[in-house]
Nucleic acid binder design. Sequence first.
RNA 1: GGGCCCGUGGCGCAGUUGGAUAGCGCGGCAGCCUCCUAAGCUGUAGGUCGCGGGUUCAAAUCCCGCCGGGCCCGCCA
Length: 616
Amino acid sequence: MAASPWGEFKHDVCDALEAALSKLGWKPPVGPEETLEEPPDPKLGDLATRLCFELAKALHKSPMWLAAELGKAIKPAGLIARVEVADSYVNFFVDVPKLAELTLRTIERADTKFGCFDIGKGKKAVIEHTSVNPTKPLHIGHGRNAVIGDTMARILRALGHGVEVQNYIDDMGRQVAEALLAYRLIKRKPRAKFDHVLGLIYTDMHKRLGQDPKLEQQVRRVLAQLERGKGAPVRRARQLAERCVEANLETTDRLGVSYDLLAWESDIARSGMLKETLERLRATQYVIEGTGERAGTLILRLADFGIGDKILVRSGGTAVYTARDIAYQLWKFGRTKAGLRFKLHSKRPDGMRTYTTAQRGRSSAKFGRADKVINVVGAEQRFPQQVVFTALKALGLEKEHGNSHHLAYEHVWLPSGRFSGRKGTWVGFSVDDVIEEAVARAHVVVEEHAPKASERFKREAAELVGVGAVRYSLVCTSPEKRITFRWEEALNFNRNSGPAVQYSHARACSILKKAKRRGGKHPSDVFKLSEEERLIKLLAKFPEVVREAGEKLQPNLPALYAADLALAFNTFYEAAPVIEAGTAELRAARLRLVNCIRIVLHNALDLVGIVAPKRM
RNA sequence: GGGCCCGUGGCGCAGUUGGAUAGCGCGGCAGCCUCCUAAGCUGUAGGUCGCGGGUUCAAAUCCCGCCGGGCCCGCCA
């Protein structure tokens, strides 16, 4: 059974090209598969090769002549219906009836597994995302990180990887020191969800920090206590952070984002893996002791790898963030002797179990030991991420270096500028606030559409649609592009939105429900309409989209695909009656098509973490 | 000063391993509910792909130089 119908077609085209080339005795400088592209207009063909341009250089013949000869030598086979030569291109037309039968049968059999592969071969991928300082609620920018990471996790699972999602919690940084102090000093606290309380008093604290130099000293004292890694302040910091994380998790639960492991900095610090990592680095030629102004420091020299120096240990003996990140990265690959201990943190509403590192936990071989690591981290951290990865190379871990990926994303901005935790500009733009608003808006629309539905249905539909709109708006843009948060986009329920795809899915379900009886035979060439042909081809391409998204780390691809498919389905919906199709054969065939569209819309939405409702 | 990312119709985006007439959505304008959910559909207007060179049979895509926006180059966090 073909996992990917369109992949099968590509395969057939490559075979046909190889056969023709060997018959002609031509040796192209590149493999045929690298020369395949989609023609700009489907009328020209479904796949084209630009091979003749490549051959022209090698054989000193005109590309047009080569295309004509090559075209004559190709025998259509498999899913290829016919071959046409246009200009210097050889164009391949897919056999639509064959592709239709293959695609529909594959989707029906695979159902929710359509789009899944086994190319990951169970190889383990660790994805780190979210990793917000545990001192505030998630704002919509953190939401983008979480949604990108979660979508990537879903895509890699579909490709057959074992996936472990880690959320790194830094409970020892300056922000926590400030939050701890703020919590102690500010007696009158706002009433709100705990993470919001912390975020608000943190902002309040920052107003005072500017005016009161003594306060800055107090922060430093607390930070120093945290650095020591033991004692009451460390315990209190952890407690405070635990409460904040629990509140943050309520938010991510609602977004449909989940974690396998919460990795706490305080646990990592106590494990000794930082010390171990520094010792190993010291043993290489790349670590030197600082001199002059930098006396007493430890410097990582990576000039041999084309990047600048990075101080790892300050003259005071404390390690910088990047040093800890190197140790953590090594641990993710199972490359530290020191280990961590784990225990169950909580069972989430979706049934997933989230574990946490813990002092009094058990050691376990279940976590870490990745084959591949993806860090979803802001684009501004390209340099430190590169330092971390290059450090692996310096330690001789070539393979781990090659399997380290930084999924860099640009931040979300407000029309007025950047988010600032200190200035508190996030207020009103927390993920909680945005979802609340989106769900409220969705409720109004649901009310208009289904006034007679039960209150429970309306509430559930609004939740699903509101969250769908928010998730879609956060993931549909390429990660490397900055997005500006605008209410009208986050709350967009029109075409090219999460709800639009959900709506198309609901319509498909509705047709199938109303049809009651399904099944019945039909010839494979029943699909005559261009709308049907377009849908068949789009359905066939879905697995290729999933693969590309995984290979290129582009979580926006399934989102864009889902909108494309929904659009094509809407066009078909207007053009072709399904239940009242002219003949029993056509009715049966179109019902099959609609059912397959329903499955693929569902699977595409699922990859993006959006629920596909049967009714809305 | 050195480096990285972004710049595509009024707005938001796709297309960037060089390839055939640059796609989509929003918003404009004109239409479509006795028919499977109008959160929908059809038609229409709107683009020197930031600017200028270069390489090539072929450039939104590659190279060089500018312009605009953002980011990085801390013993900060």
